[in-house]
C-alpha cells in the first residue's frame, strides 16, 4: 500500500497537521509513504525526516491556487500509482481533497477522527449529526482520499530519523487550473486562533456581558491559550465570529478545552467534543456540558475564574 501525504508549508517548517498525517500513514502499515508539497520552500519540509518520511515531491508555485494544488497532487498520486492520499481536514485540505477525489475517481472520506486497516481496506471513522453519531466508512474504489481532523491524530517521531530527498514534480496545468488564486493573506496579528491553539478557554452567556470577558482572557493568558466563545455570545455581539466554537463556528480538538459559563448545547458540543481534556465551570450542575467534561466545577464563573487563574498562574509561572 502506497500512501501520499499532503505536506503544507508553514513558515520555515511544515504544519503539525501534516506531521499527524505522516504518522497516521505509518500507523496503517504503508509499504511506502511519499510527501507532496505545493508551493512554499521545499527545504522547510526537512523535519518530515524525523517522522520517517524520506521522499518528498515538491511543485514550486509563486502564488497559491487551490485548483492548481489539487491538479498537481492528483497527477503526482497517479504517477506514483498510490492507493491512498491523506490530507489534513483544514481550510486548505477541505478545498483540495474533494477535487482530488473526483479527478482520481476515488472515494473521499472527510473529517476522520480514526483510521484503521480492516480486511485490507482503510476504514475511516468520523463524527456525523453534530457528533451525536459516528460512522465507519470505507471506499469502494481502488484509490481513496482521507481528510484527518487536525490535532486528533498524534504526530509521533519515527524510531529512526531518515534523510529527506526533495524532488521537483512538474504537473501539466491548464488555464482552468489557475482561475482561482490567493492574492493576499490577512493574519490575525497578536491573537492566537482557536484552530491553532493547544489550549482554549471559552466563555458563554454565564459571563453576563462583554465587559466580563477579561476573566476568560486572564485565564487564557496564564495558560498561553486562545480565547473561544459560544454562539450565544457571538450572536449577541460580545465576541467576534472568528472566536466561535461549535457547529456554526470552528471545530476544534485542543489538548485542553475550558468551558466557562457555557451550558453545552449540542451545537457547541459538535465543535469541541473531540478535545482531549474538557474542563467545565458552570453554576448549573445539570448543565449538559458536565456530561462531556473530564473535570467540572459547579460554581459561578465570577467566583471561580479569579481563583483558578491565580492558582494556574502559580503552576505555569505566568
Amino acid at each position: 500500500m502506497k500512501i501520499i501525504v499532503l505536506l503544507e508549508p508553514s513558515g520555515n517548517s511544515i504544519k503539525r497537521s501534516s506531521l499527524e498525517s505522516i504518522t497516521a500513514a505509518r500507523a496503517l502499515g504503508a509499504t511506502s509513504i511519499h510527501g507532496f508539497m505545493y508551493g512554499g520552500d521545499a527545504n522547510s519540509a526537512q523535519i518530515a525526516g524525523e517522522y520517517g518520511l524520506s521522499d518528498i515531491a515538491h511543485t514550486p508555485a509563486t502564488e497559491y491556487s487551490s485548483t492548481a494544488a489539487a491538479t498537481s497532487l492528483a497527477q503526482f498520486a497517479k504517477s506514483e500509482s498510490a492507493s491512498a492520499i491523506i490530507v489534513a481536514a483544514n481550510a486548505a485540505g477541505k478545498e483540495i481533497a474533494p477535487r482530488v477525489a473526483v479527478k482520481l475517481e476515488a472515494g473521499y472520506i472527510p473529517d476522520c477522527v480514526g483510521l484503521a486497516l480492516v480486511n485490507g481496506l482503510i476504514q475511516g471513522t468520523r463524527p456525523v449529526y453534530a457528533g451525536k453519531a459516528r460512522i465507519a466508512v470505507s471506499a469502494t474504489t481502488a484509490m481513496s482520499v482521507y481528510a484527518l481532523r487536525p490535532n486528533v491524530f498524534t504526530a509521533r517521531k519515527a524510531e529512526n530519523a531518515t534523510s529527506v530527498n526533495v524532488r521537483t514534480f512538474t504537473p501539466q496545468l491548464s488555464e482552468s487550473d489557475t482561475r482561482v488564486k490567493v492574492t493576499n493573506v490577512i493574519r490575525n496579528e497578536g491573537k492566537l486562533d482557536v484552530l491553532e491553539a493547544d489550549i482554549i478557554v471559552s466563555g458563554g452567556r454565564g459571563l453576563k456581558g462583554p465587559e466580563n470577558f477579561h476573566l476568560v482572557e486572564n485565564l487564557a493568558d496564564k495558560l498561553s491559550a486562545a480565547v473561544g466563545a459560544s454562539r450565544a455570545v457571538v450572536d449577541a455581539g460580545w465576541r467576534p465570529h472568528g472566536e466561535q466554537v461549535g457547529q456554526t463556528g470552528k471545530t476544534v480538538s485542543p489538548n485542553m478545552y475550558v468551558a466557562c459559563g457555557i451550558s453545552g448545547a449540542v451545537q457547541h458540543l459538535a465543535g469541541m467534543s473531540s478535545s482531549k481534556v474538557i474542563v467545565a465551570i458552570n453554576k448549573d450542575k445539570e448543565a449538559p456540558i458536565f456530561k462531556v467534561a473530564d473535570y467540572g466545577i459547579v460554581g459561578d464563573v465570577f467566583d471561580v475564574l479569579p481563583v483558578l487563574s491565580q492558582k494556574i498562574g502559580a503552576v505555569t509561572g505566568k
Binding site: A101, E105, A106, G107, Y108, I109, V118, Q123, P127, V128, G131, K132, A133, R134, I135, A136, V137, S138, A139, T140, T141, S144, I278, V279, K285, F290, K291, V292, A293, D294, Y295, G296, I297, V298, G299, D300, D303, V304, V307, L308, K311, I312, V315
Partner: peptide, 30 residues
C-alpha cells in the same frame, strides 16, 4: 464511491470528576 460500514452512538469516556467551588476543590482541580 464510499460505503458506510457501521454507525454507532459515541460513548463518552470522560473522567467525569465534578468538584465544587471551594478553594480546596479549585486547588485540587489544578
Amino acid at each position: 464511491r464510499v460505503t458506510t460500514v457501521s454507525m454507532e452512538l459515541p460513548q463518552t469516556q470522560r473522567r467525569g470528576i465534578i468538584l465544587n467551588d471551594s478553594e480546596h476543590d479549585i486547588t485540587e482541580l489544578v
